[in-house]
Design a protein around this nucleic acid. Structure first.
Length: 569
DNA sequence: CATTGCGCACGTT
DNA sequence: AACGTGCGCAATG
């Protein structure tokens, strides 16, 4: 099932909106992939699920399809015509959202009271609450929406409105403050557990159900710190939220990996400096309409993952299916949390879904940099395609400066070996570098590229642990530099004496999912060298896409040369 | 290169 | 009229 991703999809939509980019399927998928390593098939399925369940609205706007956060739309329309929500199905996400909102609300109270202990007596003005919540989640909420929710909360007794118009928190409804979702998205929210912490004494205690940690802070802080409200720059208490929104937004909310921009506060009064940008006139240009139209058609099933997202179950964190995907499939549990995934869903192109050599697995949210032990929250993690260790680019020695996309093969320092060593004396096929030629193959979509940096800059030879075999030593090019050697590319191993296990190992590094066929069929090196195109395409029961890519490797091994002419003819 | 920020013209309410 | 939307560009890493 897809609830796992609904939050992410909403986040994507809102993020795009905030960026003033059209939240179309393309961008949403892109966002999900970047942020959460959700593949596009799954993303599309989940998006569809969201649409079907009215969590997300699919709309046509200016000739193209866009997606809207239904909750926001709802808040909007409720405001305009005070009807009841038109749609039954939105109830699901309403409860989820309510809970989320309750968390944010409590959190806001906690923070604000710590900031300004006087609020304990005076109550907190709505705009402060709104500002605080927006600073946490301006994607899901707007000023108006929050106002509405606050009023609702008052009706339900969760909040108390004072005569001065300020708010106090009412009695806790523990149900509302339960930690939400144990999925991989960890929330910075609190667990409302340790009552004891703030049970001690405070007279307001029964009124202010603020989270424990805030109560602690509050106690320490007393009233010593002068009141400084971060977002307060407006004259009247009540308007000004709109310009404030932006500021809050930019200061506190960072989702993606970036944010420079010195942030100027937009002042409508300096209109007279037009510094024209953006498109001149006429809002839509045809070419883009057409482009959008073309990419509009929904998912073509992506050959490499059969994940379908439609089925019931939701056990596998990757495909959300319960059923195993083959006789040999099994569930692998994250070694940190309760997430599980099909064995077959792991070890694919997505490096964040790679198992460790000891057959354990960390889900993407638990995976930590082996150096700083921070998760991807602290920065993009690059995962070694051999040992599955993750690193922040800057933590790795030497620092990784070039961009390694998720899915791109990359070797950590421990797994890198100078090519010379491998080629000339080891000849161990499966531990061979991925430097030279796998990017093209293993990565599904990416076209070509990544200049192969043969000689790796590294020294650590980490002697190969493999059993020695002296069979081939391909005229040992002592200078590995590259394929100037006439016919044989020394970086391509000689497979003629491989056992089928070795063949399997070789292909497993590029095609973890498909490689087992080589073992099943007991294709050893000699057989491999005899394989013909049709054999690969038809006899191995592979899907066409992988089969073609595998065939390419087969040819390379057969001729020990990487010449596209050979396999595209 | 990909991603993000955003002015401004236009659509919706 | 006020607000929502997103194109197309600029800035940014």
């Amino acid at each position: 099932m897809s609830q796992n991703n609904t939050g992410r999809i909403l986040e994507a939509i809102d993020q795009l909106r905030r960026r003033k980019a059209r939240p179309d399927i393309q961008r949403i998928c892109n966002y999900l992939f970047r942020r959460f390593a959700v593949n596009s098939v799954e993303a599309k399925n989940d998006l569809q699920w969201c649409v079907d369940n009215n969590v997300v609205l699919k709309v046509e706007y200016k000739g193209s399809i866009s997606y809207r956060n239904a909750a926001k739309k709802l808040a909007l329309s409720n405001k305009h015509r005070d009807g009841q929500s038109s749609n039954v199905a939105s109830d699901i996400n309403k409860t989820v959202n309510n809970r989320k909102f309750a968390q944010l609300l409590t959190n806001a109270f906690g923070e604000l009271i710590v900031q300004e202990p006087d609020y304990l007596e005076l109550g907190i003005p709505a705009h402060e609450i709104i500002g605080n919540i927006l600073s946490k989640d301006s994607v899901r909420y707007t000023k108006k929406y929050i106002s509405i929710l606050i009023e609702k909360e008052v009706e339900h007794g969760g909040l108390i409105k004072m005569k001065n118009g300020n708010y106090l928190m009412g009695p806790v409804n523990s149900e509302d403050f339960k930690f939400e979702s144990n999925n991989w998205k960890t929330d910075e929210s609190f667990v409302n557990s340790s009552q004891s912490d703030f049970n001690d004494s405070s007279p307001q205690n029964d009124v202010y159900n603020i989270p424990p940690q805030f109560y602690q802070q509050l106690k320490q802080k007393k009233k010593s710190i002068p009141h400084k409200i971060q977002y307060k720059s407006h004259k009247s208490v009540d308007d000004s939220m709109d310009s404030d929104d932006k500021r809050i937004d930019s200061e506190n909310l960072r989702v993606g990996g970036r944010r420079k921009k010195v942030k100027k506060v937009f002042d409508p009064s300096d209109n007279h400096v037009p510094k024209k940008r953006g498109r001149p006139a006429g809002s839509l240009n045809k070419s883009t309409i057409e482009k959008n139209k073309m990419q509009e058609e929904f998912s073509r099933p992506d050959s490499r993952t059969s994940s379908n997202g439609r089925e019931q179950g939701g056990v596998c964190s990757v495909c959300h299916n319960q059923n195993k995907r083959g006789p040999n499939d099994r569930m692998v549990a994250c070694r940190e949390c309760s997430n599980k995934a099909h064995f077959s869903c792991l070890n694919g192109d997505d490096m964040m879904l790679r198992m460790y050599p000891d057959n354990t697995w960390q889900c993407p949210h638990c995976k930590t940099c082996v150096v700083c032990v921070e998760t991807s929250d602290a920065g993009y993690l690059i995962v070694c395609s051999v040992c599955a260790d993750a690193y922040h680019g800057s933590c790795h020695q030497p620092a990784v400066t070039e961009k390694i996309k998720n899915g791109q093969r990359w070797l950590c320092i421990n797994c890198q070996k100078p090519d010379e060593l491998i080629i000339s004396d080891i000849g161990n096929p499966f531990r061979r570098k991925s430097n030279s030629n796998d990017d093209n193959d293993s990565m599904s979509g990416s076209e070509e590229s990544t200049p192969s940096n043969y000689r790796s800059p590294v020294e650590s030879p980490s002697p190969s642990e493999s059993p020695e075999k002296s069979r081939d030593s391909p005229e040992n090019g002592s200078d590995c530099s590259d394929a100037e050697d006439p016919s044989i590319d020394p970086s391509i191993p000689d497979a003629s004496n491989w056992t089928y296990e070795e063949v399997y190992q070789y292909f497993a590094q590029y095609f973890p999912r498909e490689a087992k066929i080589f073992r099943e069929q007991e294709i050893d090196g000699r057989s491999l060298l005899l394989l013909r195109r049709m054999d690969v395409l038809t006899q191995l029961k592979l899907k066409l896409g992988p089969a073609l890519k595998i065939y390419r490797h087969v040819v390379k091994l057969q001729v020990r040369r990487d010449d596209p002419k050979l396999y595209w003819l």
